[in-house]
Design a protein around this nucleic acid. Structure first.
Length: 667
RNA sequence: UGGCCUAUGGUGUAACUGGUAACACGUUGGUUUUUGGUACCAAAGAGUCUAGGUUCGAAACCUAGUGGGCCAACCA
């Protein structure tokens, strides 16, 4: 395998280090712990890929654990969907587990914690508790129930469990430190009363453990070696470790290994959203047809759209893992699916926007079944027959009465090849009253050896089958629809994200099955949607082919390029960033940079600039940009002082000519 | 007016734990081509947020600053 030469990511480094420090390889164990409160999306595939990928790499078990501690939001439907999606991606979990499996053990440990004086029942309103908790910048204060006796706590907790309390009346919290700088350590809640039906434990419980109390302990019970989660759980790690150590005291003989939580940056894709809540809103508002709408970033949506597990796994692998926030360009996802489908999808011919083509020298009653290669990338794909006749459809875009030399397609008097068939020459056009071309009349030649610039796809009108094609565009018009403070993500919905087209395809497609994938030649990859019936096939456009012709064509919306982050920085910061390279620039570049620095320097104060006077001698670039900025300040009336004179005279003696020149100008 | 995380081409990830920035996508040219696809070749693009320091040597280590992110749900 070539993976051996591949650089390790930071998680693999941690594992390698643990292994080197004596952790036995057969102790490695991972888990993927979704909450069954929604469908999995492309963001989850990263977490899945990391944990299951590590499992494959180290040949270690990976559990699928449903974090089902909140019966208010969780449903069996989601459990089933999650299992289907993970399996579809091609991963096999060692065990299917549920946090709810551990409710009893967790409860027993909670009682032990109470006995040790490390947990207590609080009976205040949530508002009162929130107030005592303080804020990130202010410490909290102890509540009035913090020092209840162990006996009282035991009794109350038993009552909570027995169903004798109402929701909100009492909760159990850990007794840690209300002044702790980490807010999660300020006596976190462990249990709340919830009189709800649970999808697995039904009505057995009316108290439910909170995430922090459940998650780490579930890892511990399952003896997970490395518990990997996304960055926002970093502050939880301290609490994770605290609970873990308490419980270790109760169960170290049964469960000897302490798990280790590590965090990575989650996946973000531009032009889409990942939040389950917001995805649900798209559904409820009828923007999309369901969780598996092909425009959705859900795994089920991608699947229906025609994405393959291999492409998604490749994508996740390519994206990598690190700890910094990232936004990945959808073009990478598109690259991955094209790469995969290019090797796998059979090519066929389909015309989406037809114009009629009549071959005047081809007999009216004649038809030929010509041989066509299914996939030139795959020798085993074989050949099929496609019917040819006098009247064909070609793509409207493929004909222009007259065009420049860059247009390789059909023009009046021009010649072009029909894929798998003959070379034709356009002779004349028929137009309607408005002047639109309705028919192109051609002649054909059986000499197929001839070199012509363009090759067109086509379909015989008599034999074509009519199908529905659904063409998708991105769901949002903004690159980061949910990152605006002043606007709602719903404001950026692309009204044209779905286009339904009546198209014509070659007859070999009659027997196409749901889910089957094709390349419509010169157009893109398409699959058969589940909405297809025996009467009518429905195709989804998965992704278009790369189209370098589209780039040659005049473009419309070239505005709104991304603003580099630099522009948000202060003037002095921007000037400083020139410092690094200024002395290495070429003359022309340097002049431009100088002009910009001088412009920026208008917004710089002496206080901004002074610290730079001490810049090390070797950092000529920084001294140069400082000198230039200083010049602007002096021009604007700044008086010279000792520090300035000193800085200038030192520069005058420098060996760099540029610096000497700039300094002399200020002398 | 706290704590924690983070900063490498346009995007994402690397750099054998200190030896002079690589890979992929994207971009731009070109070759091949019965897909303006694929494949192949080539090029441009960062000197590693800023400043100071340690060192013969720093993207990496230290200090300070700046930018970005996370933390105040009886959610996970």
């Amino acid at each position: 395998m070539s993976t051996e030469t591949k650089a390790l990511n930071f998680l693999e480094h941690i594992i390698e280090e643990d292994l080197a420090n004596g952790l036995s390889k057969d102790k490695l164990r991972f888990r993927f712990p979704p909450e069954p409160n929604g469908y999995l999306h492309i963001g989850h595939t990263k977490a899945i890929g990391i944990s299951f990928g590590l499992g494959e790499k180290y040949n270690a078990p990976v559990n699928l654990r449903f974090d089902d501690t909140n019966p208010a939001k969780e449903e069996q439907e989601y459990v089933d969907a999650i299992k289907e999606d993970v399996s579809w991606l091609g991963y096999k979990w060692a065990e299917e587990l549920y946090s709810s499996d551990y409710f009893q053990e967790l409860y027993d440990w909670a009682v032990l914690l109470i006995k040790e004086g490390k947990a207590y029942v609080d009976s205040q309103s949530s508002e009162a508790m929130a107030e005592q908790k303080g804020t990130p910048t202010q410490p909290g204060i102890d509540g009035p129930y913090r020092n209840r006796t162990v006996e009282e706590n035991i009794e109350l907790f038993a009552k909570m469990k027995a169903g004798e309390c109402n929701e909100g009346e009492h909760i159990l919290r850990a007794k840690i430190d209300m002044q702790h700088p980490n807010m999660l350590m300020r006596d976190p809640i462990m249990y709340r009363v919830l009189k709800k039906h649970h999808h697995r434990t039904a009505n057995d419980w009316c108290i439910y453990p909170m995430y922090d109390w459940t998650h780490g302990e579930s890892d511990y019970i399952e003896q997970i070696s490395h518990s990997l989660c996304s960055l926002e759980f970093k502050p939880h790690r301290e609490l994770y470790d605290w609970f873990k150590e308490q419980v270790f005291g109760f169960a170290k003989n049964k469960y000897p290994m302490l798990p280790k939580q590590r965090e990575f940056a989650r996946l973000n894709l531009n032009y889409t959203i990942m939040s389950k809540r917001k995805l649900l809103k798209l559904l409820e508002e009828g923007v999309v047809s369901g969780w598996d709408d092909p425009r959705m970033p859900t795994i089920s949506g991608l699947r229906r759209r025609g994405y393959t597990p291999q492409a998604i796994r490749k994508f996740v692998e390519t994206v990598g893992v690190a700890k910094r926030e990232n936004i990945i360009d959808v073009s990478l996802l598109e690259f991955c699916i094209r790469e995969d489908l290019n090797k796998k999808a059979d090519r066929v011919m389909a015309v989406l926007n037809p114009i009629k083509l009549i071959i005047t020298n081809y007999p009216e009653d004649k038809e030929e079944w010509l041989e066509a290669e299914n996939n030139q990338e795959d020798d085993s794909a074989g050949y099929r027959k496609v019917p040819f006749s006098r009247e064909l459809y070609i793509e409207k875009e493929d004909f222009k009465e007259a065009a420049g030399s860059k247009f390789f397609r059909l023009t009046l008097g021009g010649e072009v090849r029909l894929k798998n068939a003959y070379i034709i020459k356009a002779e004349r056009v028929v137009k309607d009253a408005k002047g639109n071309v309705t028919e192109v009349h051609c002649t054909y030649s059986e000499d197929t050896e001839k070199k012509v610039k363009g090759t067109l796809h086509w379909v015989s009108i008599k034999h074509a089958i009519k199908v529905e094609v659904r063409e998708y565009d991105r769901l949002f018009t903004d690159e980061a629809p949910d990152s605006h403070t002043d606007k709602d993500f719903m404001d950026f919905i692309n009204p044209n994200s779905l286009k339904i087209i009546e198209a014509f395809v070659e007859p070999s497609l009659t027997k196409a099955k749901i889910g089957e994938q094709f390349q419509f030649q010169r157009l893109g990859y398409f699959n058969v949607d589940k909405d297809s019936t025996s009467q009518k096939l429905v195709f989804n456009k998965t992704v278009g082919l790369r189209d370098s012709w589209a780039k040659v064509k005049p473009k419309e919306n070239n505005n709104l390029q991304k603003q580099p982050q630099q522009n948000k920085r202060s003037a002095i910061e921007q000037i400083k960033s020139y410092g690094k390279k200024y002395d290495r620039m070429q003359d022309q570049q340097r002049e431009k940079a100088k002009a910009e620095i001088q412009e920026l320097a208008k917004n710089v104060t002496y206080e901004d600039l002074e610290p730079l006077f001490g810049t090390a001698v070797k950092k000529t670039g920084t001294r140069l940009i400082t000198m230039i900025s200083l010049g602007v300040l002096l021009d604007n009336g700044l008086q010279k002082n000792d520090a300035i004179n000193d800085f200038i005279s030192k520069a005058l003696n420098d060996k760099n000519e540029l610096l000497v020149a700039e300094a002399s100008a200020l002398k």
